[in-house]
Structure formats: structure tokens, C-alpha cells
């Protein structure tokens, strides 16, 4: 991957709003180095399932199901290493005792059986204290040394974009309480005059609120703004 390709991929990843597109863009970039499968996931603490933490799965379905169902995350040496390092690593660097730690060996063997002999993992440590990673598997990695840092960067962008798109909680605070109130009245068919009388504010002010809400929701008309707010569940019908 050349620098310009990386910058283009980063730019595109930050532009798309569909998690599937983040998955596709990431897969395309990773395939250049032989990676055929990857996962972008938060890492659960002991006793929790990984299922609700997975942000994007580019794993084969069979592996996804086995990994989730058998709670492999808690014995997977790659996932466990993420808790102890901020720097990316090859799966072979996630060392464990093959004799004593049979469960870890089994996870790595089974990954190899489905075509992930080798891998590279970028750990993520979020500001709120939670952990995650983007882990990539390959039959055989074909990656020059300098690509390591490019993949590190790409991994960070894919991860946070997936996290942002899959976790829309900030969007709930997108609208001000007044905008939410006005859109809610509009959603039940009230005209601007009705709303103006109900809330005791001028129609001019209401139009301003619609305009502001529309800008945030990236819509052009009042109706589109209401539809979008409903779709994002920013207002209740």
C-alpha cells in the first residue's frame, strides 16, 4: 500500500456512514497484504460474552459462531495480549505455553484450520478505559516491514469509525430539547402555527429550530427532518 492509497482509504473510511462500507474498505486495504479475514471488536472482561462487543465481523460465519458460542475470547492469547500492550503485534508474538495452555493452543490451531495461519493485531485502548482490537488473519501474511505502521493507522481509523457508527449514543444528544419538542409535535401532524400556540413561541423561532435541526440531520425539508429524527429514534412517534 502506498502512502496515497492509505490516505485515500482513511479519507473514505471517515466519509462513509454505513458500517458495511467500513468493512468493505478495510477488507480491500487488508487484502493487499494477504489478509482474508478480520474482526473489529471491543474486548469483554472475564465472565462477559464478546457478542455485544463485536463492532464489525469480517470473519467466516463458522468461525464467528464458534468463537462467540465457545467464549474463545477469554482464552485466545491474541485477545488477552491486547490488555497488556498498546503496540500492534503479530499473532506469533502472543506467546503462551503450548503444553500447559491447551485451550489457547486449540483456539490458535482451529484458527489455522480455517485458513488463518498467521495474523496481525492492533490493540485499542479507549479514553473511557475500555479495550478493543482489530485482529486480522491470513493464510500467509505478505507484508513489508514499513507496512506495519500503515496498518496500525488504518486499523485505528477502521476501529473508531465502526465504533462511532455502531454506537450512536452521541446522536441522541444531537438535538436540543427544544428541537426535539418541536419535531415531536411536527411528527404528530401539528402545523407550525399549532406548535407556536402550544409552546408560546413565535413561528419565526420555530422555523429557526427546524433549520438548525435540519442542518444537524442533513435534511432539506421539514418533513425530511421529522422522518430522519424518527429513523434515528431521536423522537418517539
Amino acid at each position: 500500500m502506498h502512502v496515497q492509497e492509505l490516505l485515500d482509504a482513511i479519507d473514505q473510511i471517515q466519509s462513509v456512514d454505513d458500517p458495511q462500507k467500513v468493512l468493505d474498505l478495510t477488507a480491500a486495504a487488508l487484502s493487499q497484504y494477504g489478509f482474508t479475514a478480520f474482526v473489529i471488536t471491543g474486548l469483554p472482561y472475564r465472565g462477559q460474552s464478546i457478542e455485544g462487543h463485536i463492532l464489525l465481523s469480517g470473519w467466516p460465519t463458522e468461525w464467528y459462531e464458534r468463537y462467540v458460542f465457545s467464549d474463545y475470547v477469554h482464552v485466545d492469547p491474541v485477545a488477552q495480549r491486547c490488555f497488556g500492550t498498546a503496540e500492534p503485534f503479530f499473532w506469533t508474538e502472543a506467546s503462551f505455553d503450548r503444553q500447559k495452555n491447551r485451550t489457547a493452543a486449540r483456539v490458535m490451531n482451529e484458527a489455522a484450520d480455517i485458513g488463518m495461519n498467521e495474523g496481525f493485531c492492533v490493540p485499542m485502548h479507549m479514553e473511557d478505559g475500555s479495550q478493543g482490537c482489530i485482529s486480522m488473519g491470513a493464510e500467509r501474511i505478505e507484508m513489508p516491514h514499513e507496512a506495519r505502521v500503515l496498518l496500525h493507522m488504518l486499523g485505528i481509523y477502521s476501529f473508531f469509525r465502526a465504533r462511532l457508527l455502531k454506537n450512536p449514543s452521541p446522536a441522541r444528544r444531537l438535538l436540543t430539547p427544544r428541537e426535539t419538542e418541536i419535531l415531536t409535535w411536527a411528527a404528530v401532524g401539528k402545523t407550525n402555527r399549532d406548535i407556536s400556540e402550544t409552546l408560546g413561541i413565535t413561528e419565526r423561532t420555530i422555523l429557526d429550530h427546524f433549520q438548525n435541526a435540519g442542518r444537524k440531520l442533513e435534511t432539506r425539508t421539514r418533513t425530511q427532518a421529522v422522518a430522519m429524527a424518527l429513523q434515528y429514534r431521536l423522537i418517539q412517534p
Partner: peptide, 29 residues
């Protein structure tokens, strides 16, 4: 590099300006 994630989490778009370098043991860009 982790700042990219911190800013990404608040919806900011960032563009790397050059190749990161390991400074004091951590990738810095």
C-alpha cells in the same frame, strides 16, 4: 497515534501528515 481514536470518537476527521515515528517507545504522528 491513540489520539486519532480519541478524536475519531468525538466525530473529528483527521489526516496524517507524515509517517509516524516511535518516540520514547510509542508511535507518534
Amino acid at each position: 497515534l491513540s489520539l486519532i481514536e480519541v478524536f475519531g470518537a468525538i466525530g473529528w476527521r483527521t489526516t496524517p501528515l507524515g509517517m509516524p515515528e516511535v518516540i520514547d517507545g510509542r508511535a507518534t504522528l
